[in-house]
Design a binder for these strands. Structure first.
Lengths: 333, 333
DNA sequence: CTGTTAGCGCCTTCAT
DNA sequence: ATGAAGGCGCTAACAG
């Protein structure tokens, strides 16, 4: 691999001059810059990030930690990174609230973090964010010192609930998931609050006993079992609208209810959240909420870069627009 | 961050001695080693990978390039990496056969590659494998100079087909996917060959006109459209067994046929491949083939490390055992 | 505007 | 068995 020194020799200048041309942050004569760039092309020079990082103590590599694979977010992050001249390395961590990813910061591989749907203890997060630029994408914990990019989960669920009310639904159930510790992810809390707020705004009475919480670690079968409780209810006792926190839960409900002879959406409307494949895979297909994942990822990347450049006095919270997707499982008013 | 020099000072030895203790490849007195290790703990020292990589020109960071997110493989790769003292950085590339990932090798971030389900031109792959250790996991191209870990896709499909034959099926269709260029991934070729081999071995006549190939880029709706052609056939003309190359295709067929009133598995047996969530999401649930993803990932990692250590004279091909998973869509004989 | 110099953290040869 | 010295590729401070 050609090194910066090789480029310098080939162009007949000093190594530091090459460095200056490449960084673009120092004044160099146009003629000289042209010679350097020509040499870069001829030698197919690629800067060595180890040398650069070691010397400058800065890193253009962003660590992306995710607990849920969302292709759209990944593509958005990568796309923005590419435009901005950054690299992203990603790390799948199925056990949430673990600090294993710190290794990748401490050993110098990366210099900043984007969390995607990753739940991390508030206190730890606070400490961490003082050492490394950090942004939370999609899921987040409340923290004034943390940057975040997401949709307005509460508003999204409010909007969805409102449409069902306008379509004539009256007996509502909300199916949330609950983590082993009994904690709800913050976005899940927000969605539930949005749901309640919509009922209240429209004066719809609500019986919490109709709702349920599914174990976050439940597999599909577990979700089906929960749904069977609803399938087994007397028609008069069953909710006429079941709002699920995620598509896969919604799909489990649709499949289970239909198999038991309950009419969807005739007797019960069912909805999901995220507009994943699962929403299309069930019959009838699932009404759901779509998030602008690509933009969310791209914004998260831009935000990190701003922070790295110190462009930002304060951390920011970016909210992007959601979109309701109506399918057969719950028709629009 | 404490550096190696800090550790040396704290332990009262020379930096080079600390390095020797940590690498374990030089003789150091037990007493001295103990002092060093104590200092490492007290200072919470983490070796800086940039300094190490720059100096040694070796990297313990493995790049994982994938076009399909398979949690099991990821976890296997990470688990083995952790045991062996390696790091994994991963890169999602939806556009297959692209060389963008080379950047991460050329800039020194990583020193070897694991491809997961990533199709890469044979010639390029050959060139690359001469510069960087490389293993293909799950999908692979035929190449004597390349290491690979996978199940025996041909044998898996042979076994599945044979079970359907033994269960009395006689009119077989095989639904493959075809990439824009008209090329089949190698594993897809192998599966199709295994299917044909089983029919031949049991003397079952085969009408290729019954089979079809779905555009690899088709979304769920596209798959449903293909399935509708089969739903619309006269009962006497329709295959009584439809073997799909992937679960999601199988799910589309199950859903579409059932919705059209065709009995699954009564009139048609349907199968998938991979045992993903999609196989559970459809009704009836899908008979499929399970791969030992975790082990595949772990083996791929071990193989890379062997190659990096030069332990391996020749590249290797590791085949792991598949498992048939029978569900309602195609019952066992 | 360009070049010289020093050193980021680490490993490895060589001398002791 | 231990330490001293050099240098991997790069950038930043300084000199010219």
């Amino acid at each position: 691999m050609a090194s910066l020194k090789d480029v310098a020799r080939h162009a007949g200048v000093a190594p530091s001059t090459v460095s200056k041309v490449l960084s673009g942050r120092y004044s160099v004569s146009a003629e000289c810059a042209a010679r350097v760039m020509a040499a870069v092309r001829e030698l197919d020079y690629k800067p060595n990030l180890l040398g650069r990082g070691l010397r400058s103590n800065r890193s253009t590599t962003v660590l992306m930690v995710y607990s849920t694979f969302v292709p759209g977010i990944m593509m958005g992050v990568h796309s923005a990174a590419h435009e901005l001249g950054y690299e992203v390395v990603s790390l799948y961590m199925d056990t949430v609230d673990d600090e294993y990813f710190m290794k990748y910061l401490e050993n110098g591989l990366a210099g900043s973090v984007i969390f995607v749907n990753y739940r991390f203890d508030t206190e730890k997060l606070g400490k961490l964010s003082r050492k490394y630029p950090m942004v939370q994408c999609s899921e987040y914990v409340k923290m004034s010192s943390s940057s975040q990019v997401s949709v307005d989960n509460g508003q999204a669920m409010y909007d969805l609930t409102e449409q069902l009310i306008l379509a004539g639904r009256r007996r509502f159930a909300f199916i949330n998931t609950v983590a082993p510790g009994g904690h709800l992810p913050f976005f899940a809390e927000e969605r539930e609050r949005g749901f309640l707020r919509a009922l209240e705004a429209h004066g719809i009475p609500y019986d919490p006993a109709l709702s349920a919480r599914c174990d976050a670690e439940a597999d599909y079968e577990g979700m089906v079992q929960l749904a069977q409780r609803y399938a087994a209810m007397k028609d008069s006792e069953r909710p006429d609208a079941i709002l699920c926190i995620r598509d896969i839960l919604g799909a489990a409900f649709v499949n289970t209810l239909v198999r038991a002879g309950v009419k969807v959406p005739g007797q019960v409307a069912v909805t999901g959240f995220d507009n994943t494949t699962a929403a299309e895979l069930c019959t009838p297909q699932l009404t759901t909420v779509e998030q602008p994942f690509f933009e969310m990822g791209a914004e998260a990347m831009r935000l990190i870069v701003s922070m790295l450049n110190g462009d930002l006095a304060v951390n920011r919270r970016i909210l992007l627009e959601h979109r309701l997707v109506f399918r057969e499982s719950a028709l629009q008013a």
